[in-house]
């Protein structure tokens, strides 16, 4: 080990530059931001990437409210406080799917070979697009809330409650996106990521309290719903927007988000590094 250290020191002296053994945290942050810049440029040049986060909130909010409103809550306006937090969670999750498929598409491109050959933190090519995607989650959340307000939703939590709910949606979107990023690093094609992601997304949203109150479900299903992180996000957003209270649900939801990141970020990093 000492001899090997000597050899690289010799090379460093000859070249007049130091060779870092590994990237520092500071490097990783700069590189992630540079990658986020790249992703934002790409978004600006391909605005069709915003199709899902623009139209889905409008369409789903209106559709769900008018179809289920009467049946579940007696009227559309009574259903809005239940369904808006649900739609927020659902659109954030859908936006995450695109994060995974686009990463997969990106990884097949030649430029990723260059990223791999450069002395950069392995997390940067993964985390960069996810930082840029905050714009997409924010767009989805904003449009869902605006559609709700236009349809007559009057949140009791007031402005701060709504901002809190919006913020939590964006945080949850970013955290859940790690699941789909991981799928992006293990699947063989973008279509595969899309397919698998749908199978993950539907149970996560529908087997939660997003659209119907959980107490109408059979007992065995209720225990899954209670565990589902999406349920906690929906309850937390609902508490923030409809009561303005930072309830324990908010902390549980944030804890769940942290847990998802803690599991799926290392998994993604590992399978991305192995792909090289």
């Amino acid at each position: 080990m000492t001899t090997s250290t000597l050899t690289h020191e010799l090379t460093e002296r000859e070249l007049g530059r130091t060779l870092a053994p590994r990237p520092t945290v500071g490097d990783a942050i700069t590189q992630t931001l540079a990658m986020a810049w790249r992703a934002l440029k790409k978004m600006r040049r391909n605005p069709e990437q915003f199709f899902d986060v623009v139209f889905q909130p409008l369409l789903f909010t209106a559709m769900f409210a008018y179809i289920f409103g009467g049946a579940i809550s007696g009227s559309v306006s009574d259903y809005l406080p239940i369904v808006i937090p649900g739609i927020l969670a659902q659109t954030a999750l859908t936006a995450c799917i695109a994060t995974g498929t686009q990463l997969r598409e990106d990884m097949d491109k030649g430029v990723f070979d260059r990223f791999k050959a450069m002395p950069i933190a392995r997390i940067a090519p993964l985390a960069g697009p996810m930082v840029a995607d905050l714009v997409r989650y924010a767009t989805a959340a904003t449009l869902t809330i605006l559609t709700g307000l236009a349809m007559g939703y009057r949140p009791d939590g007031g402005l701060t409650g709504v901002i809190g709910g919006w913020l939590l949606t964006v945080i949850a979107g970013w955290s859940m996106a790690w699941i789909f990023t991981w799928l992006g690093t293990i699947a063989r094609s973008a279509q595969a990521v899309q397919g698998i992601s749908m199978m993950v997304m539907f149970p996560l949203t529908f087997l939660s309290n997003a659209f119907v109150p959980a107490d109408t479900l059979p007992g065995w299903l209720q225990s899954f719903v209670d565990f589902n992180p999406v349920s906690h996000v929906v309850s937390a957003v609902s508490d923030l927007m409809n009561t303005g209270q930072v309830t324990s649900e908010v902390w549980i939801a944030l804890g769940m988000c942290a847990l998802v990141v803690a599991i799926f970020a290392p998994l993604s990093l590992r399978s991305y590094s192995r792909k090289m």
């Binding site: 060779l19 053994p21 990237p23 790249r38 491109k109 030649g110 260059r114």
Partner: peptide
């Protein structure tokens, strides 16, 4: 053993241009 150091020593140009199409 030291891939990060190697990456600082070598510039690689692949057989298919590895630059970003969107930029």
């Amino acid at each position: 053993r030291e891939p990060h150091r190697i990456r600082q020593l070598v510039g690689v140009t692949g057989q298919y241009a590895s630059v970003d199409e969107n930029l």
